[in-house]
């Protein structure tokens, strides 16, 4: 068997570009991916690729134009999504994906701004930003990939690590209760809250495309396997074993009370669309309260001067 890879000469720019062009476009989803970036760095068995695929598929189904969409991501394994998608993407500092996206969504209201980030980025260092963006109901689509640990830095304990789970910094088991992300997002005021696992790929596509239609702060949590950081210390097996585990333990319960959907290690995971309500978003309030009053005041002032 012949194995040849990259007939590249050093400093041969043309050969490198030719290689990128040859490798790009083999897959129909490649039109949404930057040339030369695939294969990505995520581990074999990681679920992040499935979330990216589901996002692309939802964009395709909803006919969201690439020119009208922007993706903002923070730091971490999930933060690298911004480097792979071929659209307006921004890779922000740690935890500051939502502040950047808030500014972008307020200035450019024609854009569909998606925040694509991990649990450590959105809920640990960026938790404050997330709850306030949800309170203001800024027009953002947040996709939070939850792998229960800080995967990129070596599997340390995160605010989403279930109680009694082992990580590299909690070798005797985690003593802290974890965040219940849908409950937190709902309590802060998100208008659309859903949770799926990477095993529920079709439902995830449907959920993301529903989120594209909603106006306001939507939150989709995706439970993803992390065989390297979380699966190994907890003896959950490979990524495939974790997917089989999701198939066995997940229970779809649409409209469930978000306070009852906490995840515990090796126990039932309740998935589904939990919250889908209508609420005026930030710009509506701002237009009706601040802008309208300021314009009225300016008009009356102008009249006074003329008279």
């Amino acid at each position: 068997m012949k194995v040849r890879y990259r007939a590249l000469h050093p400093f041969d720019k043309e050969a490198e570009e030719r290689h990128i062009q040859e490798d790009h476009g083999l897959h129909p989803y490649d039109e949404y991916l930057k040339p030369g970036r695939i294969p990505h760095i995520w581990c074999p068995g990681c679920g992040l690729g499935i979330v990216v695929t589901a996002f692309i598929e939802a964009m395709k189904q909803k006919n969201v134009p690439v020119a009208q969409s922007a993706v903002v991501s923070g730091i971490g394994c999930t933060g690298r999504v911004a480097g792979y998608l071929d659209m307006d993407t921004y890779h922000t500092t740690h935890g500051r994906a939502i502040p950047f996206a808030t500014g972008l969504a307020l200035v450019r209201q024609d854009l569909i701004v998606t925040v694509f980030s991990g649990d450590g980025d959105l809920f640990a260092i960026g938790g404050n930003h997330l709850i306030h963006a949800a309170r203001r109901n800024v027009n953002l689509k947040v996709i939070c990939v939850n792998n229960f640990n800080y995967g990129m830095t070596g599997g340390q304990v995160a605010p989403t690590t279930p109680i009694d789970a082992r990580t590299s910094t909690t070798p005797f088991g985690n003593a802290e209760p974890s965040f219940n992300l849908p409950h937190l997002a709902h309590a802060a005021g998100a208008v659309y809250v859903a949770r799926w696992t990477t095993y529920h790929a079709r439902q995830l596509v449907h959920s993301i495309s529903q989120a594209f239609d909603k106006k306001g702060f939507t939150f989709v949590e995706v439970v993803a396997p992390c065989p390297t950081g979380f699966g190994r210390p907890n003896k959950l097996g490979s990524g495939l074993d974790e997917m089989r585990h999701y198939r066995e333990v997940c229970e779809v319960r649409n409209g469930a009370d978000p306070s009852e959907v906490e995840i515990r290690l090796r126990e039932k995971i309740i998935v589904g669309t939990f919250v889908d309500v209508e609420r005026p978003d930030f710009m509506e309030h701002y237009q009706s309260l601040v802008v309208a009053r300021a314009q009225a005041k300016a008009k009356s002032k102008g009249k006074g001067k003329a008279a």
Binding site: Y29, L33, I38, I50, V52, T53, E57, R202
Partner: peptide, 9 residues
């Protein structure tokens, strides 16, 4: 489903 569930495109 295979193209949807493949993390590697």
């Amino acid at each position: 489903l295979c193209s949807l569930i493949c993390p590697e495109f």
